[in-house]
C-alpha cells in the first residue's frame, strides 16, 4: 500500500463536496475490492473518501411499490432484512450468498455495483429486477448502468446514494461458485413480473452481466424449468474461459443454473 490521504465525511453534502475537490480520489464503500488492490499496490489513489460515516446512505425501506436500499447498506443487512425477506426473499438470499461473513459485514450494495466485477452477484439481480440506481446527480436504470467489465455509467464525482428495486416480482438467483474464490462462475437471476420474464447472467460473460433472450422468450410462454429443455444455451464465444471453467462449461452451467433459479422463483 502506498501512502494516501483519508477523508471521512459525515454527510452526503460533505461527501459531494470532497469528491469534487480532492484530486485523484477513490470512494471507499466497504473496501472489499479497493483495499486488497491498494495493499497489493495495484491501485494507488492519492486520497480515499470513506462513505461509512454518512448515515443517510444506509437503510432499507418500502416506498410505495418499491424497495429502496441505501448505497452503504451492507450485504449482511440486506440478507437479514425482515422487510426484504418478506417482500423479495430472493434478493435477501442473493446478498446472503455473497462472499463470507466478513465480506458481508463490510461490503455494500453501492460498492459492489460501482465496481461491477463481472463475477459479482448484485449486477445480475438488479438487472433482472429492473432496478434503478440513484446517484447524487441522476437516476440510471440497471440496464443502462452496467456497461461492461468493471465499468459503469457513473461519471467522475458521481456517488451512488441508493438502489430502487420494484417489489412484486417472482425472483431467484442461482449461483455456481468458483471452487477457489467462491465468486460466481455462473450466476443466473430470474425475475417474473406479470407476463415479463428477465434472465440476467453474471460471472460468465467476458463483458459482465448480460440478458439471455432465448430463455426469456421460452419462460415468458411457460414459466417452468422444463420450458428451457431444448433451448440452446448462450454461445461459448463471448463467455469467460479460465483454469476453472471453459466457456463451453460456463455455457452449459447457464442452462442448469437458469432452470434452478426458475424452480426456486416459482416456489416449487
Amino acid at each position: 500500500m502506498y501512502a494516501f490521504d483519508f477523508h471521512r465525511p459525515s454527510t452526503l453534502r460533505q461527501a459531494n463536496s470532497l469528491v469534487g475537490k480532492v484530486a485523484d480520489n477513490k470512494l471507499l464503500a466497504g473496501g472489499q475490492t479497493l483495499l486488497p488492490t491498494m495493499k497489493q499496490r495495484l491501485a494507488s489513489p492519492a486520497a480515499v473518501i470513506d462513505l461509512s460515516g454518512v448515515p443517510e446512505l444506509v437503510g432499507i425501506e418500502q416506498k410505495g411499490r418499491n424497495l429502496v436500499i441505501g448505497a452503504m447498506t451492507t450485504h449482511a443487512e440486506v440478507a437479514n432484512s425482515a422487510l426484504l425477506k418478506g417482500a423479495l426473499p430472493g434478493l435477501a438470499a442473493l446478498a446472503g450468498g455473497i462472499g463470507d461473513p466478513h465480506v458481508r459485514n463490510r461490503g455494500t450494495i453501492g460498492g459492489s455495483i460501482a465496481n461491477n466485477d463481472p463475477a459479482a452477484d448484485y449486477p445480475g439481480g438488479l438487472l433482472a429486477l429492473g432496478a434503478t440506481v440513484v446517484t447524487n446527480q441522476r437516476k440510471i436504470s440497471a440496464a443502462d448502468f452496467f456497461t461492461g467489465m468493471f465499468s459503469t455509467a457513473l461519471d467522475e464525482g458521481e456517488i451512488i446514494t441508493k438502489v430502487v428495486v420494484p417489489a412484486g416480482a417472482k425472483f431467484a438467483y442461482a449461483k455456481f461458485r468458483n471452487p477457489a474464490s467462491r465468486y460466481a462462475m455462473v450466476g443466473v437471476a430470474v425475475a417474473k413480473k406479470g407476463a415479463k420474464v428477465v434472465v440476467a447472467v453474471t460471472g460468465a460473460g467476458s463483458d459482465g452481466v448480460f440478458r439471455w433472450a432465448d430463455a426469456e422468450a421460452a419462460l415468458t410462454k411457460r414459466f417452468n424449468a422444463k420450458a428451457l429443455d431444448g433451448v440452446k444455451t448462450p454461445a461459448a464465444k463471448g463467455l469467460n474461459s479460465d483454469i476453472h471453467a471453459s466457456a463451453e462449461y460456463r455455457s452449459h452451467l447457464i442452462g442448469v443454473m437458469t432452470k434452478r433459479a426458475v424452480t426456486t422463483a416459482s416456489g416449487k
Binding site: 477457489a180 474464490s181 483454469i243
Partner: peptide, 24 residues
Amino acid sequence: ALLEGAVYNDNGQLLTASYMDYAM
C-alpha cells in the same frame, strides 16, 4: 483430489498465486 492444483502457464507464471485461484 477435488480442489487443489498449482498451475503455471507456458511462460512459467504461477496462475494459482492466491486464494482467488488456488482452491483450498
